[in-house]
């Protein structure tokens, strides 16, 4: 229960008064862990459409090139990276143009080389382009904008993947659970030649 339920604000307008201000507006339900203001901001962002189906399909393919499934874990798209990027470019509007423009740059480059959009290329044709923009410092000069875009995609893909359920399990993060901290495990202390007595 909130402090407002602890018997305070007895003679003053409380949260109800705030709620009543929302007259004429479709009320946005406040989910746990969000303020009313946040709930409204997020509802608005979720309703906004920015990236289109073709752009999202391209993002899905690229993100799976960056983080494919391997022996240990699934792929970027399996972890929900596409939906994450769809949201985050709306939430951080400074990402909108780099993302949209970068995707178009990629399609233009695909068409120059193979007369098709990136999504229609064969896996080998896709890597023909990706290999030239994925390694900063080795990028042919005329493709430098492609390198910037791919770096942005790598960053967003990695962040989206490793903050997902699949990605957190891949990293083997052990925390976010109640426990008693008793110090570094003995075998780890030994490995590093450290001790608590020093």
């Amino acid at each position: 229960m909130g402090l407002s339920s602890l018997g305070l604000a007895v003679f003053n307008p409380d949260e109800k008064a705030i709620e009543n201000l929302e007259l004429g507006k479709v009320p946005v339900k406040r989910p746990n862990g969000r303020t009313q203001e946040e709930a409204e901001m997020e509802a608005k962002l979720k309703a906004e459409i920015f990236l289109n189906a073709h752009e999202l399909a391209t993002i899905t393919i690229l993100s799976d090139i960056i983080i494919p499934a391997d022996k240990k874990s699934g792929s970027a798209s399996q972890s929900g990276v596409t939906a994450f990027i769809e949201f985050i470019v709306k939430d951080k509007p400074e990402l909108k143009t780099p993302m949209r423009g970068g995707l178009r740059w990629l399609d233009v480059e695909s068409n120059k080389r193979f007369s098709k959009n990136f999504t229609e290329l064969t896996p080998a044709q896709r890597l023909n382009i990706v290999d030239e923009i994925a390694y900063p410092g080795k990028t042919p000069k005329h493709l430098s904008q492609g390198e910037s875009f791919f770096t942005l995609m790598r960053n967003l893909t990695a962040t989206g993947f490793y903050t997902s359920k699949i990605g957190i399990a891949d990293l083997d993060y052990k925390g976010n659970t109640p426990n008693q901290w008793n110090g570094v495990p003995d075998e780890v202390l030994k490995q590093y030649g450290l001790s608590y007595d020093a």
Partner: peptide, 10 residues
């Protein structure tokens, strides 16, 4: 090489 993609990046 810096950057990259794929299983080695993971």
């Amino acid at each position: 090489a810096a950057g990259g993609y794929g299983a080695t990046l993971k």
